[in-house]
Amino acid sequence: MTVSGILDPLTTAQSWKEAGREVAIATVIDTWGSAPRPAGSHLVIDGEGNFEGSVSGGCVEGAVITEALDVIASGAPKMLEFGVADETAWRVGLSCGGRIRVYVERLG
């Protein structure tokens, strides 16, 4: 992982917050089966829905961003789960057939 590049989500999160923007950090906590991004991967989101990084191959990012806006508004962290067996999979699932758990927290 490179730290210097502009595509580093944690560096982006810091600079957004320092610029006065609201920020949420989403982190892959667990994966089961084939999952596109390993545990520890980050997606960072600002209060207007801008984002950097990834928690999947693009399959569930839209849903995570929506939830992140809630987390920014409420300040309470959320645990999200995505997978083929999940009811939400009909709307936003992982095409690879895996399952992931994503933790979303507000940067205070």
């Binding site: 210097s4 560096t11 940067l107 205070g108």
Partner: peptide, 15 residues
């Protein structure tokens, strides 16, 4: 996570 913790983490990664 607090900004202070993130700043500490990013500084360590840069170093």
């Amino acid at each position: 996570m607090q900004l202070k913790a993130l700043v500490k983490l990013n500084a360590a990664r840069r170093d």
